[in-house]
């Protein structure tokens, strides 16, 4: 009886070679280099889509697919999130029962600060997102916390993004704090690791698979991913937060999805947002 061995043989060798090469290129706490990651990602997409402008990546798939861009631009003329932004503004300016408001919880009264989120809090030893601080602000002032995925929290967040449009994303990674670097690395690892029954990484669709059709859909490039959140998705018919989208994507890999604002998702947001340093906030956005 003949036995089938050859395939298995090759794989073992290939893998071990790639892994040993990988050990020195920013995959451990000792070697991780966020700036090098950011530049490498930009270069990757420059090569893949030479005609796309770097600053245009905040527009997602429409930066690289001219066919659907026109349709999207028409949508943006009468943006479906407009009403939600107005509601968000009203919510933002409604004082709490104790007489204080959101403006008292944030720098610059909460206006034009979206580009600084998420950030690493040394005191708390964790990544803080905008939505997290919106709820912490409520809690500190004796108000009930909001649900994470949609509704009022998305509206307040949308208004805060709106006031920050065109501000340049500026995510800091304090080098004197190993915790920040570990959080970044954790997010990076989550993005590139295959998971779920379908064995998909975020990168499968949003790096290698960007702008290649899955059925009739074109996955967006990961560069620019977080800039336009919260987002009004036609599929949802409403506004949703970044972590709502994360949960959905996670589920699409046939994973049991994590809940919004879990540490892992916040670390992922930290990594993804760092990749967008230098690009402009354009939230809220409209997508399919």
């Amino acid at each position: 009886m003949k036995i089938i061995k050859t395939m298995a043989f090759g794989v073992g060798l290939v893998l071990s070679a790639q892994i040993s090469q990988a050990a020195d290129s920013g995959f451990t706490l000792e070697t991780v280099n966020p700036e090098a990651d950011r530049v490498a990602l930009q270069n990757y997409f420059k090569k893949r889509f030479p005609d796309a402008e770097l600053n245009d990546y905040v527009n997602g798939i429409y930066a690289v697919d001219s066919n659907s861009r026109e349709q999207w631009e028409e949508i943006e003329e009468f943006p479906p999130y407009e009403f939600a932004v107005e509601e968000g503004e009203a919510l933002f300016n409604t004082t709490f029962a104790n007489g204080k408001g959101y403006a008292d919880c944030f720098e610059n009264g909460g206006i034009g600060i979206r580009q600084n989120f998420p950030y690493w809090s040394k005191e708390e030893g964790t990544v803080k997102t905008l939505e997290m601080e919106i709820n912490e602000c409520r809690e500190a002032n004796g108000e009930k916390v909001l649900k994470w995925s949609k509704g009022d929290i998305a509206k307040v967040s949308a208004y805060m993004a709106w006031t920050s449009r065109d501000q340049v994303i500026d995510i800091k990674l304090p080098e004197d704090d190993a915790g920040a670097m570990a959080a970044y690395l954790d997010g990076k690892k989550f993005f590139y690791a295959k998971r779920g029954q379908l064995n998909l990484s975020c990168a499968n669709c949003h790096v290698q698979g960007a702008n290649i059709r899955i059925r009739a859909d074109l996955p967006s490039p990961q560069l620019g991913h977080t800039s336009h959140f919260p987002v009004f998705r036609s599929k949802w018919g409403e506004l949703g937060t970044l972590h709502r989208r994360y949960s959905g994507c996670h589920k699409d890999s046939r994973s049991h999805p994590l809940k919004p604002q879990t540490e892992t998702f916040r670390n992922l947001e930290y990594f993804q947002s760092y990749m967008n340093n230098g690009l402009a906030i354009n939230g809220p956005g409209a997508r399919k």
């Binding site: 395939m7 298995a8 794989v11 290939v14 893998l15 790639q18 295959k194 029954q197 379908l198 064995n199 998909l200 990484s201 990168a203 499968n204 669709c205 290698q208 698979g209």
Partner: peptide
Amino acid sequence: RAQVWDATVNNPITIMPPLGKHWI
């Protein structure tokens, strides 16, 4: 058949799910 069963054998980062190995 083997390619359908587990495409990662030939390409560890393939987007193709291992339809047999993961009992999809």
